[in-house]
Design a protein around this nucleic acid. Structure first.
Lengths: 134, 134
DNA sequence: CTGTGTGCAAACTCTTTGCATAAGT
DNA sequence: ACTTATGCAAAGAGTTTGCACACAG
């Protein structure tokens, strides 16, 4: 609670009603991947009538502050990930659902190539696309 | 030429003027990643006045036929990849540009986790996001 | 001929923006 | 008070769709 307010302060963001509420939703229950509309729905559901535009603003501010990451998955919607450390994802096309690869899997990427001149690696996304067996 | 027509036939697609022209653009020069508007621009540039809607239709038909793949990169635009085999990408955020990781890099993904019950791996996308060194 | 493909324009979805109002310090 | 955040509604980008006309087999 107060640590959420502190977290926001540190990021240079005023701990407004909306931002605190959204941050609580995002960071209370471990790793989450969600789109703006999902978060908006949750906020409204618990009686925090924030606007969708503010949810978008807030998600981007949190991303700029390093509190969230944007997932590399195709599709029209942008997914934000509350886990900003290096980890990887299953992606189920049919449902557009994203699931963490369990850390216990110890998935490793080997022989990482040299990036082109003047570039450095920002991060690595591994997306394992799944389809229903049949 | 005729092999492109055959390729289309095999996929159950009539080799129409537009589809042949688009297929030639796509598959003539090795691996390419492009968005619908890019391909549309190229077609118009060489005097094949195909409509954007047809380019979208065609790209999806080719994808369904396994001739193209959709890339897992975030962002508003959908990128299609003419290389459908397992290979990986650099993604330069600032430019929205996608570059193949050279095959010589021999990048390997190890300890691939078990997919959840009833699921199988369709493919694996590794996106190495780059930023300008500074 | 018959059925599929194409093109246009309109519709749609997700996201961003401008500006007046509200809230934080 | 002063400044930044919020909300609304409108605009924007990319993509999809419906339907009349055109073309391939």
């Amino acid at each position: 609670m107060t640590d959420i307010r502190r977290k926001l302060q540190t990021a240079g963001l005023r701990p407004t009603r909306q931002r605190v509420a959204l941050a609580e939703l995002l960071f209370a229950k471990g790793d989450r991947h969600l789109a703006a509309e999902d978060l908006h729905g949750e906020a409204v559901a618990i009686g925090v009538p924030v606007s969708l535009a503010t949810v978008y603003n807030t998600l981007h501010q949190f991303t700029d502050a390093g509190m969230l990451r944007i997932l590399s998955v195709e599709g029209s919607r942008t997914y934000f990930d509350t886990n900003t450390s290096d980890h990887h994802h299953f992606y189920i096309e049919e449902d557009g659902e994203v699931v963490d690869v369990p850390v216990t899997a110890q998935l490793k990427v080997e022989n990482l190539p040299e990036p082109p001149e003047g570039m450095e690696v920002a991060n690595i996304d591994v997306v394992i696309r799944l389809r229903r067996k049949g």
